[in-house]
Amino acid sequence: MRKAQSEMLGLVLIVLLISVGILIAIVIFSKPIGKEVRYEQEGFFAANFLSTLVKSDSDCRGRSVGELLQDCAETHGNSAIVCGERDSCGQARFLISNLLDVVFSERGVKFYFTISDREGNTPDSLEDFVFGEPCSGEFESKTRPLVFNNGVIYLKLDICH
């Protein structure tokens, strides 16, 4: 081979390598459209779950789950509301755990549910209200505030992707 020919061959090789590189970069960095829509829908689902949960009947003296949580946060676990063998904290915990199981665990959806105050700390009486595992990768998160006499608590639900 002459010098000019080998240079041409080198040039062709470089062009080929660059094109392959660009193609791989496009494939890696282009985010599929479907994913964004799915994430949005998961967010919508999480928000709906929280608002429905708070308003749902707790089967305890005509109170809703939200009212039980308010009572639990207000009375720091020394609630006067008794629901069979459980107090307001116990009943709310039992219901939230069951509903999360029915809606997420049984469908194989990974989630992480927590309750915190304005500063992001978990009040003592609500320390047991942690369900699921923290998401390791990307997740869709929704928060719902719940006001009570002494302040506000935030119900947070992460749906892992």
Partner: peptide, 19 residues
């Protein structure tokens, strides 16, 4: 597709958790 919904019982005036 599933979505959490409230189901209202107007006689007992209660909201149930539904899907």
């Amino acid at each position: 597709k599933t979505m959490p919904v409230l189901v209202y019982d107007p006689v007992l005036s209660r909201y149930y958790f539904g899907l």
